[in-house]
Design a protein around this nucleic acid. Sequence first.
DNA 1: ATGGTGGAAGGTCCA
Length: 261
Amino acid sequence: MRIITWNINSLRLRMPTLAKISEKLAPDLICLQEIKVEDSLFPEKDIKTLGYKHVLYRGMKSYNGVAIISKVPLTGEKKRLWCNKDDCRHIAASLPNGVEINNFYVPAGGDVPDPVENDKFAHKLTFLTEMAKWFSTQKPANRILVGDLNVAPLETDVWSHKQLLKIVSHTPIEVAGLKKAMRSHDWIDAVRKIIPPEEHLYSWWSYRNRTWPGTNRGRRLDHIWVTPGLIEKVYDAKVFIEARGWDKPSDHAPVLIDIKI
DNA sequence: ATGGTGGAAGGTCCA
């Protein structure tokens, strides 16, 4: 199975790009974030035309929103509130083989890395804490977690570890929060199993850096984790960087794994 | 330190 996670930054605007990615990469299942469309306007028919007959989504007007689009059936849809907000940052479902897919869009956290001064940063930290708590209560199972987690945990997940230490997405407190969430369910970073942690790897490049890709000032904000029973089944992983260079790109590139399940 | 660009809006807010 080929599984993709992609922060699409507007599903409706990016339908042609989604079609192109679908054609080039032939995924079985795609988890999308920042679809930015309320459920009543979700382009379900167009998505099904692309071959994804099984579609789950949870969207709102203008902001956030997640979807799972799949060629294989999805059952047991899970939804819940995070940080007591109904802001469409998580959706989960099970595959026919029982593997559960979780799709997350963690709050970006604003600009100031101080939870006292900046409510958005506080929200992000609380969200990561809730992820850890929730997963610690879930029974062991074969699970995959993907999404825009808005944290670049490794030094090699950013273009300059030193220069980004005080930049939201790479501050020590966020990295600690993300690592705690990982430990809460023995999650394993499937992408880093394939692409060694020593190698620099990014999935996001700001729209504000007009020199892309020359200076390559990226960050790895998009992740794919699996539970221990699945890690040996992961046989490939990559960031489809090419898509960041296409016309009207999302600022995130798709991230994928190939897994024998 | 600042501002740079893009999306959904049709104000600004958010990334």
